[in-house]
Design a protein around this nucleic acid. Structure first.
Lengths: 355, 355
DNA sequence: TTCCAAATTGTTATCGATACCATTCTGTCC
DNA sequence: GGACAGAATGGTATCGATAACAATTTGGAA
């Protein structure tokens, strides 16, 4: 049995307060709603004194601007949408952070979605996002369903594709060639004297960047006259640390004399290295292993991991900057491809003749 | 010189199409706008035949529902806000994933923000979020500015605090006691025979969960009669892998006979272990090290890391479920504290007499 | 056949801010 | 003193959907 004089649910009172509208603030101050509206925008012409009185009233009453109402009449939602494959992957969350940071103080809100590496889920997300009328949208990769492309086209908003160079860009692109980046790594290691190259990646083409890295690997090994590359496909992308460990076992069973193994990402490379150590093998003494992405872990772990450093944060930041240009400046410069940097980072895990 | 019959900028045409409104779809089909509106909701009463015709028209015209207009009249924004300290931390991105998954097919959109472990940034984000009139909000931790509390109170929406048990909960809570969890780990290791305990954490109280872990550590070491704990504070939270490595060096310089080091998170523990190995020390032979959070890395790395497993995904999922209950069901059950599980995971890094 | 309940569709007002244009006020210059 | 530019403020229509209620149709039951 509840006590009778127990206080009533606090939210009842609160719910009333919630109804507070701009007109009521205006009445309280003794101005028109329009003036209150102007007081909230820094560029509008309101006398300093009036603005001060309004803001005091806003504080006193606890009024909070309602953007959904505003965006309807101003026809500007104040949203930017961004889709990434996964938020659990630190490369992509760095990109998301870059976007968020670039959006700070622009008055734009980020609507973030993750596609789980699926073009179908991407399509559904794009539709869900467009229902909020974003002023621009940032996508990962260039592989989209036909319907997704049609929706984006119809939406008439700037689109930025990131993390790779699509064959048929929709609009703007901020990224790099995953194939060439992997190629660069192969050449760097070949320069060190490695000859028998293995590769570990996922089983399907879901992860288009992963596929591009593999094809860059295969092409370059071929070009260097180092025979066909030894490829192990293991697990649905994105492959985990654990799967990296399992894959390297398969690879070494099949081609025991492999000298160096390149992995689709640092995570699988790390798993591979740890599995080798667990089995008593020496990295890089018995086998050299390299990754891709330069995750934090790769510079810290022992042995530290040779990899390709990608400017994940910069991809996000530049994508957002491009988008802002297009949204505000009217995109006068037209569609463009912005190449972002990458570089080979040689570390202990591929030290030739290393400990 | 551009070719004259080059197609004009596609976006011009697209921008026109964008203006498409529900009324135009209605006219095209020969029904009222209201009927089109009903066709978009699955519970509304529209004949199957009419809905089919409408949806065909929607497809043909490429109409996309405008939720911002709808939310104004229905007074339901369709948003849920969630604030996490960082999206680069896989623990919190797991929580974000749990929230997103629980929201799937509810028609609710997640507005995600990251506070960077700052109560001031949290306050600004809460205000920004409230301007979108979310139907509920999920926060991390129980430490908020006064103004933030006031705004939340006024907003009159359900609030769920996660990841810890606040002393003064606002509303609902989904979390666990970080202090008790750390205490459990200390006891488990004391049971194994360890006596001289060290601790590595950040320098400030910004990370309240980190502070709670430290106090749980200190209290328990004291209770067990194992003298004052040896604490190294290093770096602004969240401390990185690298800082974990630096901290363990400090700790061992100051107290060389330390037997086991507990770290505020697996990331710093990993950094500490790698630094020890780099310096030729054996883990756990020379020094045992444990973390907190059970990140993927901890089960994979060598030696694998003893830690506290936390149900990060479940925290997000349950927080969202609680919130949905409160939003839809009217929160009839009142405010509640939902405790989520955690458990000690003993691994190689604290093997007594280990290799 | 008559009548009523349920299913289906239509009409109108409205959500809360902002765009657009009109109006008032202030100060300055000739 | 008059005129006028520019700043400050107000009034009204409007953004595009949905709530609320009204009207119409349909299918049986009486």
């Amino acid at each position: 049995m509840k006590n009778e004089d127990e206080p009533k649910d606090k939210r009842v009172k609160a719910a009333d307060a919630q109804k507070l509208t701009m007109a009521e603030v205006a009445k309280y101050v003794g101005v028109s709603a329009m003036t209150v509206s102007r007081a909230f925008r820094q560029d509008a012409s309101v006398s300093e004194e009036t603005r001060k009185r309004i803001m005091e009233a806003v504080d006193a009453l606890g009024y909070v601007l309602d953007l959904s109402a505003g965006s309807l009449s101003s026809r500007r939602s104040g949203f930017i949408a961004a889709l990434v494959p996964s938020i659990n992957n630190s490369n992509f969350s760095d990109t998301a952070r870059g976007i968020t940071d670039a959006l700070e103080n622009t008055g734009l809100q980020l609507l973030l979605g993750y596609t789980d590496y699926s073009a179908e889920k991407e399509e559904r997300l794009i539709e869900a996002m467009l229902r909020r009328r974003p002023e621009g949208i940032i996508l990962t990769g260039g592989s989209h369903t036909d319907r997704a492309r049609r929706m984006l086209d119809k939406a008439g908003i700037p689109v930025v594709e990131t993390w790779e160079i699509p064959e048929e860009p929709i609009n703007h692109v901020v990224g790099f060639s995953n194939s060439e980046a992997m190629s660069l790594l192969v050449r760097a290691l070949a320069n060190q004297g490695y000859r028998r190259f293995g590769y570990i990646g996922g089983t399907t083409a879901r992860d288009t960047r992963g596929s591009q890295r593999r094809s860059g690997f295969l092409k370059t090994v071929e070009e260097l006259g180092l025979g066909p590359g030894r490829v192990i496909s293991f697990g649905v992308p994105p492959i985990t640390m654990e799967q990296g460990g399992q894959a390297v076992v398969s690879l070494l069973e099949r081609w025991p004399d492999t000298e160096v193994v390149l992995c689709v990402s640092d995570l699988s490379a790390f798993g591979a290295i740890m599995e080798c150590k667990r089995r008593g093998m020496n990295v890089p003494g018995d086998i050299a292993i390299a990754g891709f992405g330069d995750y934090e872990i790769s510079s810290i772990c022992h042995p530290s991991i040779t990899t390709i450093n990608v400017d994940c944060y910069g991809i996000g930041r530049q994508a957002a900057v491009r988008l802002l240009d297009a949204v505000h400046g009217g995109g006068s410069t037209g569609d463009e491809i912005t190449l972002t940097g990458y570089r080979v980072v040689l570390r202990e895990s591929t030290n030739r003749g290393g400990a």
